[in-house]
C-alpha cells in the first residue's frame, strides 16, 4: 500500500515552472530514492510536498488524506516530516531546545520522554544538550536534524541530501541510520546526490530529469543500468 501518492505534480518558483507533472508512489515501510542531476527539481519536489511552495497542478495524498493544499505545519503534524537540505539548525537555540520545539510543534504529548529517548539513541548529542545547535559539527548537526524529525513520530520521512558535506565515515553512519529507521517501519523518500549508495539501499527509485521522471524501477535494477551508471554514478560504461 502506498503511504504517499503524487499525481501529475506541477510546481515552481515565481514564473519558473520546475516540475512538469511528476507522479510517484512511496510504499509503506519502504525506502524510495529519487536521484537526478543538480537542478533537476529534487529539492523543489520535497518543498512542494512539505507545502513550502504551492502545488499548481496535480495532487498529493498522504496516508489517505489529500495534502495538496494543506499548510506546512499540518503536513508535518500528519506525520510527513522533512529533514531539509543543509539541516537548517535553529542555531542559536540549544540542542535540547531544538528537540523540545520539534516535539511541541508536532503536538506531542510525551515530549519530555521523547527527548530523553533521542539522547539515548544519539549518545553523541547527550553531552552537548545545553550547547547552541550552531556550535555542533556537521555530523552532529545531521544527527540532531534526524532526531528533531523523529520527535514528531513520523510515518514517513522526506530526506533531502542527508549525506551532503559530510566526511566519508559520517556518510556511512547516516546511511546506517536511514536503513535502521526503515527497519523500524518508517517509510522514507530519499533525495540524494550519492546515487550509488541511495540506489543500493532503495526498494524503489525514480530518476528525475529536468522536472520530469525519466526512469523508474527497483533500486538494484537501476544500479545495473548503463544509462544510470554513465549519467549519475560517474563511471564510463565498461
Amino acid at each position: 500500500m502506498a503511504i504517499l501518492e503524487v499525481e501529475g505534480l506541477v510546481a515552481g518558483y515565481g514564473r519558473i515552472e520546475v516540475l512538469h507533472g511528476v507522479s510517484l508512489r512511496l510504499q509503506e515501510h519502504s525506502l524510495c530514492a529519487i536521484i537526478g542531476a543538480n537542478g533537476a527539481g529534487k529539492t523543489t519536489l520535497l518543498a512542494a510536498l512539505s507545502r513550502l511552495i504551492p502545488i499548481r497542478e496535480g495532487r498529493a495524498i498522504f496516508d489517505g488524506r489529500e495534502i495538496t493544499h494543506a499548510s506546512s505545519h499540518a503536513v508535518a503534524r500528519a506525520g510527513l516530516v522533512q529533514v531539509p537540505e543543509g539541516r537548517r539548525m535553529l542555531a542559536g537555540m540549544s540542542v535540547e531546545e531544538n528537540l523540545l520545539v520539534a516535539g511541541e510543534g508536532a503536538g506531542g504529548r510525551t515530549v519530555g520522554a521523547d527527548v530523553a529517548a533521542m539522547f539515548e539513541r544519539f549518545p553523541t548529542l547527550a553531552p552537548r544538550r545545553a550547547l547552541p545547535a550552531g556550535s555542533l559539527s556537521g555530523g552532529e548537526q545531521q544527527m540532531l536534524a534526524f532526531a528533531r524529525a523523529l520527535m514528531a513520530h513520523p510515518k514517513a520521512l522526506l530526506l533531502d541530501e542527508p549525506s551532503m558535506g559530510l566526511a566519508p565515515r559520517l556518510v556511512e553512519t547516516v546511511f546506517d541510520l536511514i536503513a535502521e529507521e526503515r527497519a523500524r517501519g518508517t517509510s522514507i523518500l530519499l533525495v540524494e546526490q550519492n546515487a550509488r549508495k541511495a540506489l543500493a539501499l532503495a526498494d524503489h527509485a525514480y530518476v528525475l530529469e529536468r522536472g520530469s521522471i525519466s526512469l523508474e524501477g527497483k533500486g538494484a535494477d537501476l544500479l545495473g543500468r548503463e544509462e544510470i551508471t554513465a549519467a549519475y554514478l560517474g563511471e564510463a560504461t565498461p
Partner: peptide
C-alpha cells in the same frame, strides 16, 4: 524563537 531563527525550519517541525 524558532520562527525568529528560521521560519522554514520551524514550519517543517510542525509549528504554525
Amino acid at each position: 524563537r524558532a520562527v525568529a531563527e528560521d521560519r522554514v525550519a520551524a514550519a517543517l517541525l510542525g509549528i504554525d
